[in-house]
């Protein structure tokens, strides 16, 4: 007789996915808790307005859970989730363009901490954020997956259905463009 395995913090993503597929809502909640912040960082880094990050994170998880049958374990669940986040953000951008909603610039948002120090740091970050928006989507996502999320080229390539060599080329193109923009 099979007994349900008690879930712990060390339960693998794969085990949680199987539990969710079997109808365990708590497993879905655990996956959200595990990956929501990295996803939020990725979305914000890719240009999501701060005010919409929460909604976009939710939408990404909804799409992921509904399409989890298509996840074949070719890459980590988080990497797969981030690529879905990229699609969600692209759709969001299209809708925003139709509504002609312009997101607030990072520099005019409410901030905390030392204003002078923050202004100096945020100036470079704002330049980088602006530079990322100018990159082709593939370059931007490869750069963020590598530089922000710390993923290997092989992992990035598996998630984006490309080769590690091509991912490396995209990354270096992105770095070169960003250096020009930021400097």
């Amino acid at each position: 007789m099979a007994h349900p395995q008690p879930r712990t913090e060390t339960s693998s993503d794969a085990a949680l996915i199987r539990a969710w597929q079997a109808g365990d809502e708590q497993a879905a909640a655990e996956l959200v808790a595990r990956h929501a912040r990295p996803l939020a960082r990725f979305l914000a880094g890719a240009g999501a307005p701060d005010a919409d990050v929460d909604d976009l994170v939710q939408e990404t998880f909804i799409r992921a859970f509904r399409g989890v049958d298509r996840f074949r374990g070719h890459c980590q669940f988080r990497t797969w989730l981030l690529t879905i986040g990229g699609n969600v953000l692209k759709d969001f951008g299209r809708r925003a363009a139709r509504r002609k909603v312009m997101p607030l610039d990072e520099s005019v948002r409410d901030v905390t901490g030392d204003p002078h120090e923050h202004a100096e740091a945020s100036e470079v970050e704002a330049l980088l954020a602006a530079g990322l928006k100018q990159l082709p989507r593939l370059q931007r996502e490869v750069f963020l997956l590598r530089a922000q999320q710390g993923l290997e080229y092989a992992e990035i390539a598996a998630a984006l259905a490309t080769t590690p060599g091509a991912a490396r080329v995209h990354y270096h193109h992105a770095v070169r463009r960003l250096k020009e923009i930021v400097e």
Binding site: R41, G45, V53, F143, Q148
Partner: peptide
Amino acid sequence: LAKRLGASAAERL
């Protein structure tokens, strides 16, 4: 710098 991008949004989540 890239690692810091979006950190505040993630913190607020």
